[in-house]
Design a protein around this nucleic acid. Sequence first.
RNA 1: GCUGAUGUGGCCAAAUUGGUUUAAGGCACUCGCCUGAUACGUGAGCGAUUAGUGGUUCGAAUCCACUCGUCAGCACCA
Length: 1138
Amino acid sequence: MPELLLFLHNFFQTLQLVCRMANFKEYKTLNLPEIDKEILQFWETQKIFDKSVNQRSLDNSFVFYEGPPSANGKPGIHHVMARTIKDVFCRFQTLKGKRVERKGGWDTHGLPIELSVEKELGITKEDIGKKISVDDYNKACRETVLRYKDLWDNITQQMGYWVDLENPYITFENNYIESVWNLLKKLYDKNLLYKGYTIQPYSPAAGTGLSSHELNQPGTYKDVKDTTIVAQFKMLKNEQSAAYFKGAEEGEVHFLAWTTTPWTLPSNTALTVGPKIDYALVQSFNQYTHKPIQVILAKGLVGKQFSGKYEAAENQNDLNNYQPGDKKIPYFILKEMKGSELVGIKYEQLMPFALPYENADQAFRVIPGDFVTTEDGTGIVHTAPTFGADDAMVAKKAGVPAMLVLDKDDNPVPLVDKQGKFRPEMGDFAGKYVKNEYYKNPPEKSVDVELAIKLKEENKAFKVEKYAHTYPHCWRTDKPVLYYPLDSWFIRATACKERMYELNKTINWKPASTGEGRFGKWLENLQDWNLSRSRFWGIPLPIWRNEDGTEEVCIGSIEQLQQEVEKANAALGLNQSVPDDLHRPYIDDVVLVSPSGKEMRRELDLIDVWFDSGSMPYAQWHYPFENEEKFKRNFPADFIAEGVDQTRGWFYTLHAIATMVHDSVAFKNVVSNGLVLDKDGKKMSKRLGNGVDPFATLDKYGADATRWYMISNSPPWDNLKFDLAGLDEVRRKFFGTLHNTYSFFALYANIDGYQYGEENIPLEERSELDRWVISLLNTLVKETEGHFADYDATPATRKIQNFVNDQLSNWYVRLSRRRFWKGEFTKDKKAAYQTLYECLLTVTKLMASVAPFYADFLYKNLTDKGSGFKESVHLEDFPEVNDNYINKNLEQQMDYAQRISSLVLSLRKKEKIRVRQPLGKILLPVLDEGFKNQVEKVKDLVLAEVNVKELEYITETEGVIKKKIKPNFRTLGRRLGPNMKLAAQTLGKFGQNEIAELEKAGGFDLNLPDGSVERLGLEDVEITSEDIPGWLVANDGPLTVALDVTMTDQLLAEGTARELINRIQNIRKESNFNVTDRIAISIEKHEAVESAVSLFGNYICNETLATDLQLMENLTEGQNVSLATDVDIKMNVVRREG
RNA sequence: GCUGAUGUGGCCAAAUUGGUUUAAGGCACUCGCCUGAUACGUGAGCGAUUAGUGGUUCGAAUCCACUCGUCAGCACCA
């Protein structure tokens, strides 16, 4: 009886017994979402997360920081991505024995929350304090912040993200705020906090400054046409500038400077030139007044500015012929100079409406600036420090004052007020809006146009024209934004720039380019951190000042505030107390007293919400007021991960605060993941409707398939093109195959009553196949551990997948099947079980961090009835590598077997010979003994796999192998260098004889062009077999296989017999016979089957459990069967009773 | 505009960091295979001047320069 049927026989005999003693649960289908639910419940009831953390010792921590999401918005699929990465490495470290506490957190402040509240209440910022009290407004914010907390909790749970949501830090809580205040106080004490006047985007129409975030809303930059002026600034004569006045008509020389915002011209206090730029002194005539002029501008822009009416003159004398009204105006370059030569020259104020209230003598001169380009304009930049950030910067550096005048309260203010109107100092222009858009009924001529006319009349305008460019607009009012100086509190980040840069070098960035590039460059060009936000819902700046700003106090704790309040109460006769809620408006009511006895009120600003989140390492523990030990144990973080968009957000704020306050990094390793795009690579957006619902995805595909897909598809720092088809593939290919492999194991293990815990059969007593797969397994463990430890999970998942699919399932199990069928529980069978079991069990641990649900499911199925196991795979230790088990030789052997099989199958396919047809032999050219020995060990596997009778080695002595030779580039390249080409050519021309000679001599002398001789040894060349003339041959790299397709009668008959068996078995199955039923077979007499029946009758009967097989003429009953093309026969199969 | 990443068959993607793997593998496609744990499986096949151009080198998908495309960040300033 063939093995299979024997096995089936046993199977049914023992079925009942088996059912009772089944150790391993069997499943019909794989339902990942179902498994998710089951495992989720298990984790919850058994508190597996807690156990996984608490079973590890406190002094072996791996510190992770959770970047707090805002629960004000719904979670998206990209959050699943980011959190998968966090989870993977935290789980991995847990398996490696680390204690990984993960405190969750919520970001609760900030603009998005204010916006959504305003939208819901149907109000705008202006209404706050009017239509709605600040008090009510803040209450509404507080209620909104955790609006979607449930959804977040759900996604967290459903995706299997382990984070402590029981005790999260929440940024609006007083404890959190107190810690933040403490940090601010420390910065204040280090003199790193100051109030400054800077140029910020400001919307006069809305009366508020705008953050860069607001300015980057879609649609804020619009194309506009503005009146632009190239103005003439009259140079003053002194020692330095005297040279430029030689021969100047009327003794006037002008600088030309261009502006797209003429309304800033009255505020001009400097002209900026590029020190390295070449400038030219040009003689010509003004096109509006026709007066002779001599002007200075960048040499490279002369042609651009002197275009249209202007025409280059041959020589200076041509200029004398010019008459006003001539069509062409001549110009001539008199002199050239470097920008650096111009620096320091003074000029006459262009529009003398006012003077800076301080250091006016330092104004109106030429200063250097690196930002000056010669792309457009004149290469000389009109500089109004009150209305340009660059302007303010270079002016400050050069000691040039800004155009600030004193208002009626003696406060310095710019010439434009906060409504966007010119101040009274501006004479005829006073009270006019600087942008026509600010008027309800705009006048015909804008301020820009009027200024242009005025300058033209005064011979101060060189050119006036319309210019199209993009300009930022307030996203709320749609009106243009002004760059306007505002009072703000700053953190002097620039003071710690170098230290931040140094510390950053010690951080392991994934990918490295983000750390060096995006983050490194950012640190190099670091600006002071503008902390101020004039908003309502956020952490209030804890600084109180007296009215003139001469006295101030920075509060660093509630206790200090308490003391100050008491002091103030005593001094001022008040009865205040520290408010229960540290937010506005309550905190604004607190009045403190200065050392000199004056009232101090809080600076009304809130702080940037980014400071909130950057404070989390300290504030999450309410440090330093509590938990000092805990904080010390958890600082800095070993690992954080967020999207790249956090580079200048959270990553920076963490780094900055840690550097400035603790002179330390905040994190040692950071993974910044890319965006999640739709399958076509487009950004997901509500507008396009191409977003992927994370809940629906998890419901349908399960968390593991989603996570596995995200990690394995591409390195997380590349953008991920999220395609549901990919999820499906992962589910089918990886999880499906793994599940089937387990099912196979469970099926037979239960039948045999296999149980783990039996004595392990020593590896050396197991078969080649077993030792091979164990070797691969150990290699896999080694490699995956390396990848995970290096925060690079993608190759780990790919290797696990390859192992499971191609090696374990499709090779080991397939080739081992017969061992599992065998009736008796032999040692070999036991070895097979143990091997497969060990592979599966190890795989659960390797995959557990990426696919926590299925891994645990499988682990539990494998270990349920065993002893000495953990409750969950997540309480396990990562597998240890056993280097002794790794046998590269064995891996090589099996690789040969797989490739030879594949080559033979490919040849069969080409010749259209099906595998069922046995063939005589395979010829394998052997170039060295080692190869032969390796193949010999897997010979039987190969022959069985490809249904060939024998494998014959042919060696060179037989002279039938056609060989190919090529140089070993790796060894030779370094030695030969430029002569490499010669070597390749020479070897390329080698015929069979030359190759044979080289082999015999063990080398070859290569004559080099310089007359010297280089000896090439055998290790310097690669000789492969290429062909066996007269045979059917296929190659795969160095492997060559020939197949003997000669068909003997014997082989043909056997092939036909196997075809017959196949058809008979089909009939058995169609007829619903029991697998143990005996049958009788009648076959219509046909010459195609005669020899098969006569030679292999017994074989056919054995395989089909037939007791009788006859060839009959004129068979009347039975069915028609197609045996081969053109061979149709009739066959009758009947069940034998009894 | 500036900076950075990226560009490999229709699609997703490898390539030990410069040493010809025949430029891997998968999906899709074509042609096979249901007695065998998997047809949500499996075998074979088709399909690529590695975006383009130039350079460095004995040797380039890999390094350099430029161009083009995609994405992101930073600007929009006279």
